[in-house]
Design a protein around this nucleic acid. Structure first.
Lengths: 207, 207
DNA sequence: GTCTATATAATGATAGAC
DNA sequence: GTCTATCATTATATAGAC
């Protein structure tokens, strides 16, 4: 994990904006607060990103690229078991997911595109079912809803939902709620054993 | 259904604010646009509600009172089969649910209270289970997520999700996704037959 | 690349007339 | 209760120096 001092000012501004947009929404966040928090002047923010819209676009693009890369490395290249990959995901994903959730509510076209893609993937997985699209859409929406409402879920659970322990807990609960009929019993089993491996690995690591 | 002209200006402002806050969030909505849309001056908005915060509080209070009344009449008084009650709910609920979803994201303490209450009710229902609170929290969050992300779900489904037909569709899909083990097979059956009655009644009504 | 200073616009809040 | 006019504040955008 590289220290923040190593990042260029531009990257630092973008990272800070990601946090502010995720927490307050695009309207609620201010360029001044972002500049202050990133340790630069307001002018520099404008210089690098032109307008607020430009900064938002940069955040959108970053998040899409991040997700794309995670999918490629984790699924396509099968690095889901690689400890360094898991660690990297554990650190980077919460912010990206919080940003994505908020962007969905704020009406970002880019985020809408990600949503549509997730629905399409799920629909292909459910191909042949009765109303595959409806099931894919509702299921995807419910899962994303967890990230969008992370603040409330965290309050209800008593801890930040993005901590590894609570992510395990939420994942486990999810597997109990979803019908095995729906996703297929074998997939549920695979997910459950994957979750167990993750939890076990985390506990070993924390020692 | 009473015409809008019958409403006092104050009620009209509040109704309009409900829509604007639901769509753009509190930060994104402007008092001017609300005043224009309600057909009154900016000054009158301030006169009736003092500040933006006051208007938001009024909306929060209205929504809580609405939900409370729906629960009382629908559940406590068992009017769930009464056509006039169903019709009233069908007209009023979409806006209230959209507002509630957005208020949850905007961080309204009142909305957070509603969320907590819903989790508590669900937890009592699941009492005795392993990690009842966790299951109640995740399940409640996923259901609310559907309302929060209504815009995207509607796009994915190809129609506004708050139309009666699509509400039926979503409800039906939901019953397929949730494990009978989780809520209990008898409740699933009851919900399914309730949904069938609702759908049948609606179709008869639409003739 | 980075900063300071300034201009411009939008928005919420206030005051007072009718 | 309702309006118009004005003020004050905040935020974004621009210009230009270093």
């Amino acid at each position: 994990m590289r220290p923040v001092e190593d990042l260029t000012a531009k990257a630092r501004i973008r990272d800070t904006a990601l946090r502010h947009f995720a927490e307050h929404g695009v309207k609620g966040a201010t360029l001044r607060a972002i500049a202050d928090d990133a340790g630069v002047s307001l002018g520099l923010v404008q210089h690098h990103f032109g307008a607020k819209e430009g900064l938002r676009d940069a955040c959108d693009a970053y998040v899409v690229a991040y997700i794309k890369q995670e999918v490629e490395e984790g699924i396509d290249k099968g690095r889901l078991d690689d400890p360094s990959f898991v660690e990297q995901t554990r650190l980077g994903s919460p912010l990206v997911l919080r940003y994505l959730g908020r962007a969905l509510v704020d009406g970002s076209p880019t985020a809408a595109g990600v949503y549509d893609e997730l629905v399409a993937v799920t629909e292909r997985f459910l191909a042949g079912r009765d109303d595959a699209r409806g099931h894919a859409a509702v299921f995807t929406t419910m899962q994303l809803g967890i990230y969008v409402l992370h603040e409330h879920l965290s309050r209800a659970l008593g801890t930040d939902m993005f901590t590894p322990e609570t992510m395990s807990r939420v994942g486990s609960v999810l597997l109990n709620i979803v019908s095995p009929e729906f996703v297929g019993p074998d997939l549920i089993d695979r997910a459950r054993s994957g979750l167990d491996r993750y939890t076990a690995g985390r506990e070993a690591q924390d020692d």
